[in-house]
Nucleic acid binder design. Structure first.
Lengths: 336, 336
DNA sequence: CTGAAAGCGCTAACAA
DNA sequence: TTGTTAGCGCTTTCAG
């Protein structure tokens, strides 16, 4: 089963040449239909599988796509990977996952590693630390297929699949406002990330629309995206001890929403009685809370699928792709 | 950066032969130290990276390991994959993830797919549907490296990394008993899985030790492991409407614990007032519930790491490995 | 100490 | 229609 038969074995067994076998297998027209049938049947019988490594060496492509995410153990990303895998599998690509753990250096190393593995394209969600995207620019300039999803690099010309972060943030904030909260803080991811900026903008826009003043000290950036719990603790403590102590928090990422919940619980603050919380998350469990949280849920699975489809299309395009689109997918807002 | 330089380019540039370059690069002793230095420095300068595909073809190994799990979007498995990836990355292997979605056919197809990709070894957690493990037996008999983790195949001689399911189940049940619950039901995964049987045994043992009678109608198997929500709903409804309506449920898997919570909530039953729930889960969020659940948490990350270490050791072993161990890792029980 | 050449499995240009 | 052969990048015998 795993010490596979080669085209050579078939050729020998059938007394034909390897090229004949190859042609038969690849459905070339320049071959006698009886020979073809013979080869095909025999190949089927002995369960021949072409060696993808040899093919890769020949074709200079590996039929694999590299994925760069910050973390697998994250509801958003694991769901997105599920979507990625579902498409890739059906298209005959395999998926190589790497994690940055929000480190720029690790991101660089991962990309290099994947490239040295000759992946045919990259599906990337930037690390929270990343500000320098020249590595990606360099590759894109050379025509290497890259699709960003969720955390896209601003200013780079390529396909991007993102959620409508502005809308999600706007609606979550609006929900809090309509529920009567007046001092809404925003705990968010690193300002390096475009998604953070978009979510901040949505938050601001909602405040503005409802006549609430935006105060900068109500925005706390967690530069490690909540990976370091202390940074979230500090943020929350600062908010709670400030003169303008917020009555609600809108959190800007999956990990942060969970972290905030944990910290508030540790501080023995009840949600929503002592302080209200709403935020981005793809955790299904959060919706089981009583009372449940108002959450913004990204279509992670679908985003993974769409990104993978775009990537494979780019990879398999005969000509260099010059027209890129940004798929902005609607988030789902689940109001308590 | 990605149209890599080859050994040939170096040879040409330096006016030596490819074999000399190869030898220098591989630190062969049969080479002049000055030639060696020359090559090494030049290779460094032009940032030469050997082509792993060519190496694979040559060595007949791919430096990749295949992972077969039921689902990525599952806290246990995503954490385990995190552990797998952490070890594999450092050892120069890449990880190819496939999902069975609890289907035996898909499991088979995935294994075939990975094999045709010439992975050097397999990390497997069986699907809930699997009863026939002859595919794995066949491979193992041929000396192909496979390590099972979490859901291991009974009767197959190979490394296994599992949690102490008996202990975890025993302690969770014991906790419920000590809290005064007398009619404790057990909602669990497919009976095909060894882990289900072990967890059932732990549950039974606890009942027995505390003088509670075991009643078979209190055990509900969900053959799709909670993937199909209806099957869990039916199980719960049956339990609730039986004459011996339980006062607590002990759930046997990550997905089931979450599903049970959702269903109970939907039925407007309060935990623990109307019915108590305890179960296996690796979700961090569950611990934020108020009151929190008593949960059994498997050392997923560590299990992934240990399994990967064992696998790589087997792969790289010069001789066929004949001695196998089963690492039984302690679960963590988090008592509310 | 170094080079030439075969071979890993496959495709495709070239010959027949 | 079929066969022969070169070559993808690399290692490794075998000669020198």
């Amino acid at each position: 089963m795993f010490e596979s038969v080669t085209i050579k074995d078939i050729a020998k067994a059938l007394g034909v040449s390897v090229s004949t076998v190859s042609r038969a297998l690849n459905g070339s027209y320049e071959i006698g239909s009886d020979t073809k049938k013979l080869v095909l049947e025999y190949a089927e019988k002995i369960n021949y599988r072409p060696n993808p490594i040899a093919l890769s060496l020949k074709e200079q492509k590996s039929h694999s796509i590299g994925v760069v995410v910050c973390e697998v153990a994250n509801d958003y990303f694991s769901q997105a990977i599920n979507g990625i895998e579902s498409i890739a599998y059906n298209r005959g690509y395999h998926v190589i996952i790497t994690q940055t753990h929000e480190s720029f250096d690790r991101e660089n190393a991962n990309v290099k590693h994947l490239l040295s593995r000759h992946v045919d394209g990259l599906l990337v969600s930037l690390s929270a630390q990343t500000t320098d995207t020249s590595q990606f620019k360099y590759l894109l300039d050379k025509g290497f297929p890259i699709v960003f999803f969720d955390r896209a690099a601003p200013g780079l010309e390529t396909h991007k699949v993102v959620a409508d972060n502005f809308k999600g943030a706007f609606e979550a904030t609006e929900t809090l406002i309509k529920a009567g909260y007046k001092k809404i803080a925003h705990v968010t991811n690193s300002n390096n990330l475009l998604i953070s900026q978009e979510r901040l903008d949505g938050y601001k826009a909602a405040l503005h629309q409802y006549g609430l003043e935006f105060s900068p000290e109500h925005v706390k950036y967690c530069n490690h995206g909540g990976k370091i719990i202390e940074e979230v603790e500090i943020a929350i403590n600062e908010l709670l001890s400030s003169v303008t102590r917020p009555d609600a928090i809108f959190s800007g990422s999956d990990k942060l929403t969970i972290s905030c919940m944990g910290i508030l619980k540790k501080l023995q603050l009840k949600i929503p009685d002592d302080i209200e919380l709403a935020g981005f998350t793809n955790s299904d469990v959060v919706q089981l809370f009583d009372p449940p949280l108002t959450v913004v849920r990204q279509p992670a699975f679908e985003m993974g699928q769409v990104a993978t489809e775009l990537l494979i299309k780019t990879i398999e395009s005969k000509w260099r792709v010059e027209e890129f689109k940004t798929e902005k997918m609607p988030p789902e807002i689940i109001i308590r």
